Simulated assay, not measured.
Amino acid sequence: MSQLETAMAIMMKTFDTYAGKEGKKDTLTKGEVKTLLEKELPALFKAAKNPAEMDKIIKDLDFNGDAEVDFTEFVVLVAAMTCAAHDRPKK
């Protein structure tokens, strides 16, 4: 596989690793999102100064308002984080 195909496969596997432990197998509950962020994006999690900020991040991920984060919503988070990292000042 190419590097991009590998990255896509890792994204899918990461989502599937956390999804379904508490709720539906194809979505993330609030608790599953929190665990995923703590383990897979620790810098983002640490940047949130208090639990209310993390709750807002999780709520904002739920675009359709169903109280769950589906794969599409997860991909939007990863894309946004990737764009933010790519736009950082060059050294």
Rank of each mutant, 00 (worst) to 15 (best):
G65K: 11
S2V: 07
V78Q: 07
M1K: 13
A19G: 14
E40T: 03
E5S: 14
K21P: 02
V78Y: 04
V33R: 14
T6R: 12
A79E: 08
K91P: 04
E53F: 13
T6P: 10
I58N: 06
L61G: 04
F63I: 06
P51L: 01
A19K: 15
D87V: 03
A47N: 09
A47K: 13
K49I: 03
L41N: 00
Y18K: 06
G23M: 07
F63A: 07
V76N: 12
F63N: 08
K25I: 03
T17G: 02
K39I: 00
A84V: 07
T82E: 01
L41H: 01
Q3M: 11
I58F: 06
E68D: 11
K21A: 02
A19V: 15
P42C: 00
E5N: 15
D55I: 05
L61W: 07
F71G: 03
T14F: 09
E32I: 00
L4P: 10
K59T: 08
A7R: 14
E38T: 05
A9N: 14
G20D: 10
A47P: 03
K90A: 01
V78F: 05
F45Q: 05
D26L: 09
A9T: 14
I58A: 02
F71K: 04
D55H: 11
T17P: 14
R88S: 03
H86V: 01
T27K: 15
L4T: 13
A52S: 14
M8F: 15
L36G: 05
D16V: 05
Y18I: 02
K25T: 04
N64G: 07
D55L: 04
F15N: 05
P89I: 00
L28M: 13
K91Y: 03
K39R: 08
M8N: 10
K91M: 02
D87K: 14
A80C: 13
T82L: 00
K59H: 12
A47H: 11
E22A: 09
M54D: 09
L4G: 03
K39T: 01
E32L: 02
L41G: 00
T82N: 01
D16P: 08
K24G: 03
V69M: 07
D66T: 08
K13C: 00
K30Q: 05
A19S: 15
I58Q: 05
C83Q: 13
E5H: 15
N64W: 10
K46V: 04
K59E: 11
M8T: 12
K25H: 07
M81L: 12
M81I: 05
E22K: 07
D60L: 01
L28W: 11
A43L: 12
A47M: 12
M81T: 08
K56M: 07
I57Q: 09
T72W: 09
A52F: 09
G23E: 10
F71E: 06
L4H: 11
V33K: 14
T82S: 05
E22F: 03
F63W: 04
M1D: 08
K91V: 01
D16H: 14
K56Q: 10
K49W: 11
D26Y: 11
E40L: 01
H86E: 02
A67H: 12
F15P: 14
F71H: 09
A48H: 10
E32V: 00
A84R: 13
V69H: 13
H86F: 07
A85E: 03
K59Q: 12
K34W: 06
H86P: 00
A80Y: 10
L28Y: 11
E68L: 14
M11N: 13
L37R: 11
M8P: 15
K24V: 01
L28N: 09
K90C: 00
C83E: 09
